[in-house]
C-alpha cells in the first residue's frame, strides 16, 4: 500500500472517530432556539470623520499617509523614492501608472513567476507599488485582494511598500465591508488586511519596525 493511501486511511479513521464523539454530544441540539447575538452599535461617522479616523489610525501605526490626486501619484512616488535614494520600483502588470512612472523611474513589472525569481525579489527589489480593494476606517486598514497582476508577495517582500487607496472606497468597519461586498459568495485565493508596516514587540516589549515584511508603508490616499 502506498504511503499516500495509508495517510488517507488514517485520516478518515480519525475523522470518523472525532466526528462520532462530537455528534454523540450534540445530536439532538435545537439550532432554532439559539440566543440572539447582539452586536455593538458604533456611532455613525460622516465620510470626513471616517477619513480622519482612518488616517489617524494608520499614522499611529507608523504608516505614512499622503493625500493626493490620481494625477499626482507618479510624481509623489518618484519624490518619495528619491528621498530614500532609490530610483527603481516594482509594480503589478497592466498597471495604469506604468507609463507615468517609467518617465521618471526605472520600472520593473511583476511579470515573472516567483518560483524562479526568489533571490531577485528578496535581494534586489527595494520598493513596490500596489493598489487596494478598499479600506476600513475603524482600524486604519487597507484591504488588498492580490491577483495575477498584483501577486501576494508584491506587498510583502520589498522593504518599502507604496499602496494606492481610493478615499471613495472607505468603509466604517470590517463588518460593514462584509455586508456591502459579500465576499462570502466568492473568496479569492488570498485577501490581506494591512494596517501598518511590519513590526514586532517580541524583544522586551520594545516596538521595532520591519520585522519580516515592509519596513515602511506609504499610503497614497486619493482624496481629491
Amino acid at each position: 500500500m502506498s504511503t499516500k493511501t495509508e495517510l488517507q486511511q488514517l485520516s478518515s479513521k480519525s475523522k470518523s472517530s472525532i466526528l462520532a464523539k462530537l455528534k454523540a454530544q450534540v445530536s439532538g441540539a435545537d439550532y432554532s432556539k439559539l440566543p440572539v447575538e447582539m452586536a455593538y452599535e458604533y456611532p455613525e461617522l460622516s465620510h470626513q470623520q471616517q477619513l480622519e479616523l482612518f488616517t489617524n489610525n494608520l499614522t499611529a501605526n507608523h504608516a505614512q499617509v499622503i493625500n493626493t490626486s490620481k494625477e499626482s501619484i507618479e510624481r509623489i512616488v518618484a519624490e518619495e523614492l528619491s528621498k530614500r535614494n532609490l530610483n527603481k520600483i516594482l509594480i503589478g502588470t497592466n498597471s495604469e501608472y506604468k507609463d507615468g512612472l517609467s518617465a521618471q523611474l526605472e520600472v520593473q513589472e511583476y511579470d515573472f513567476d516567483l518560483q524562479q525569481n526568489k533571490p531577485y525579489l528578496f535581494n534586489e527589489v527595494a520598493a513596490s507599488l500596489s493598489t487596494s480593494l478598499c479600506s476600513i476606517a475603524q482600524t486604519g486598514t487597507i484591504v488588498l485582494w492580490p491577483d495575477e497582476n498584483e501577486p501576494r508577495t508584491l506587498s510583502l517582500v520589498p522593504p518599502v511598500h507604496f499602496v494606492i487607496v481610493d478615499a471613495q472606497k472607505l468603509y466604517p468597519s470590517f463588518s460593514d465591508v462584509l455586508v456591502k461586498q459579500k465576499w462570502q459568495q466568492n473568496m479569492p485565493t488570498n485577501i490581506v488586511f494591512i494596517s501598518g508596516p511590519s513590526k514586532t514587540a517580541d524583544i522586551q516589549q520594545t516596538l521595532a519596525y520591519g520585522a519580516h515584511g515592509p519596513k515602511e508603508l506609504v499610503v497614497l490616499l486619493i482624496n481629491v
Binding site: 475603524q138 486598514t141 479569492p188 488570498n190 490581506v192 488586511f193 494596517s195 508596516p197
Partner: peptide, 10 residues
C-alpha cells in the same frame, strides 16, 4: 485595534 496583517487564505 487590529494586528498589522490579517491574512485570509482560501
Amino acid at each position: 485595534i487590529i494586528s498589522t496583517y490579517f491574512n485570509m487564505i482560501s
